[in-house]
Design a protein around this nucleic acid. Sequence first.
DNA 1: CTTTAATCGAGACGGTACGTCCGGTCTTATG
DNA 2: CATAAGACCGGACGTACCGTCTCGATTAAAG
Lengths: 221, 221, 221, 221
Amino acid sequence: MQCSPTGPRKERARLTRRTGRPRSAAADAAILDATRAALVELGWGKLTMGDVAARAKVAKTTLYRRWAGKNELVLDAVAVLFDELELPDRGCLKDDIEGVVLQFAALLARPETKTALMAVVAESTTDDALRTRIREAVVERQKRLVVEGRQRAQRRGELPPDSGGAEGAAAAARSVDLIFDVIAGAVVHRALVSGEPVDAAWAARFTTLLLAGLRGLESRD
Amino acid sequence: MQCSPTGPRKERARLTRRTGRPRSAAADAAILDATRAALVELGWGKLTMGDVAARAKVAKTTLYRRWAGKNELVLDAVAVLFDELELPDRGCLKDDIEGVVLQFAALLARPETKTALMAVVAESTTDDALRTRIREAVVERQKRLVVEGRQRAQRRGELPPDSGGAEGAAAAARSVDLIFDVIAGAVVHRALVSGEPVDAAWAARFTTLLLAGLRGLESRD
Amino acid sequence: MQCSPTGPRKERARLTRRTGRPRSAAADAAILDATRAALVELGWGKLTMGDVAARAKVAKTTLYRRWAGKNELVLDAVAVLFDELELPDRGCLKDDIEGVVLQFAALLARPETKTALMAVVAESTTDDALRTRIREAVVERQKRLVVEGRQRAQRRGELPPDSGGAEGAAAAARSVDLIFDVIAGAVVHRALVSGEPVDAAWAARFTTLLLAGLRGLESRD
Amino acid sequence: MQCSPTGPRKERARLTRRTGRPRSAAADAAILDATRAALVELGWGKLTMGDVAARAKVAKTTLYRRWAGKNELVLDAVAVLFDELELPDRGCLKDDIEGVVLQFAALLARPETKTALMAVVAESTTDDALRTRIREAVVERQKRLVVEGRQRAQRRGELPPDSGGAEGAAAAARSVDLIFDVIAGAVVHRALVSGEPVDAAWAARFTTLLLAGLRGLESRD
DNA sequence: CTTTAATCGAGACGGTACGTCCGGTCTTATG
DNA sequence: CATAAGACCGGACGTACCGTCTCGATTAAAG
């Protein structure tokens, strides 16, 4: 639930003297809350650092002492929302997938998420450090959902177990990546690019397609 | 191949008197070329209207007379690139799909495309007119590829023909939309969000998944 | 009453063929009226050529075909107002001077005059052609009032006649210039710089000063 | 010598907390110097805020933080020059007046002064706050010269002492105003409107006129 | 009448400056 | 040291006018 291990914010030089006034912990939370609130009201494009500072009742300097800029701040403010996604056991793979698809769609329907995610990805095309941080803070973290769903389906016998050995593990990893890109990509594209609703009917049709594809994939892979 | 029918730019009131000095047609082309060049060199975030004007050897006012802002200008400059996508007949559905996936990936690998597409989509989350224009200029136009590939596969007998009647047509349209979101979404997500290469191996695995999914979809739909 | 001899406006090249559509005479009047109206409403600083053209229901090109710019146009529009000054015979020099002082003050109280006169003079400090035109169109033309008042006073015996000869004429001209600068300068300075009213009481005190000065000047000059 | 009491520039709210980085005092001087230099080179009409900022090596925002606009800035830059006028004792009233007339003429001959003074007065006809500031910063401050010259002449016995009482004081004040308008007005009009030189000969003739007028005024007032 | 030539309106054009806003840094005094 | 406050520099914004230019449409006088 905490992205501290991924280290989004600026850290003081390690091993440095710990004298002086310590950073306010409350400020961090206030800033991230203010960032999300500003995203909701203004969207990425009109959000400004000064406005966030004012909302958080914090000086602008305090922001810059902790985050390198708007990109990093917003990414941090939004990444934590993705950690709320869960995969409750609904009894069968199809229902599990439909559930996570709808959960993800609901997350993307929130204004702070949708306006921020694409914007940060766009910025990442010209900022390698940011791209790395997105992968750490969002992409790789959420693959856990695919991994867990797959394991659960394997336990249920809905999917065959991984083949053993290094090659089997690599194949499994490739599968997870592919499935993740297909699910996340389709939902994001439907919701944000096509601009059509991701409702239960669409989720059902998509899941049908995906499940059939998974079985086809296994038989050849 | 021409986006004139979609009308992205500001148009003078239709049917208005044709008086006054006409707009320079050469300026339009110069501006769009300059925009693409600036996207390549600077990326979305650092592209400025003033810089585009200077590159196009045009006054800033000329830009604002024709486009409402950076979003609209960049969308126009980039949308035309998507019209270059084609669907050459490679003999079977699998090869056709792999071909278009790789073509699309190549398009997204171009710096002007990748930096602009996500950014404009991000802006569109707080700008309805822009969202509409994206759909008209990019999304709906490129569904032609799915429609054409589907028809070709049906002629080859690789896919069953559409069922007749209004319901059949609606089901076909839903299929096209779903397939489009899955293909475009997966490729965009892989390339831009996950940041992994879309190479021939990935395209083959993805196509295998999709084809199996399609056949499974038909059998139930 | 007409400043045509002073040639404020752009003239077509002389000796050119007189074919083609002639300039609209009505347009000239409409433009000058519009200019004065705009001066009243907006003042010099906010008056724009486009606005004048719109008020006169004339194209901007028509303005520029006839005047070189804002300075020249405004000067023409205002200069004619100074020709309305008169010197009615009130019986004695003191009353004549008081009369013209109050008339001049009333003219300077009109918004179009006060905002334009100083502005054009200010511009003339960096534009020799304009300075020349101001002298022709305003300064030299209005010295007639001093000349006439002086002659009238000489006829009445209130002032001694000019001494004869070239030297006498030159001395008279110097006197006219000095008196003109003192009267016009004092009124303009009181009205526009000091920002105090030029009322009958002030006019009386000023005239007393001036008359005493004139008599003192004669006795030594 | 200091215009601080007249307060031309934007002031932060009085009694406000003295927190934050203080305004740079050096910037003020650099800006006013740059303004004067720009006036000399470009004249009022072509002086731009951006150019002044560049010359002063200061950001444009710093200008706008301290002055409301071009009018206020230029007035401040020029007003201080008027404080350089002095009234050295030359032994008799006539010489004192001639001296100050020539000094004032020399001041008006400086390009920064002549181009700015009339322009700011012109703007003041449509801007009450500016008119007030001109009176405070220029007009009222320089009346000191008339007051001092008058007192000195009274001490010398060249002019009769003020009559006592409130009425006497008011009459003296009226005299000062009148004399100030006559001197300043005549010199400004000669120099800037008529465009003739204010040389020693003219100054002598003008002073003769004024002195005779003053004596005549006293005998009746 | 037709030609010819200049005017007219409309409005796009290249420029330049505007005054504002924001990003990110710095300099204070206060914790 | 961190902090709040706010001045600072730099640079882009989108707008407003400037004075010029291209149009097609008038409008006389000359042929």
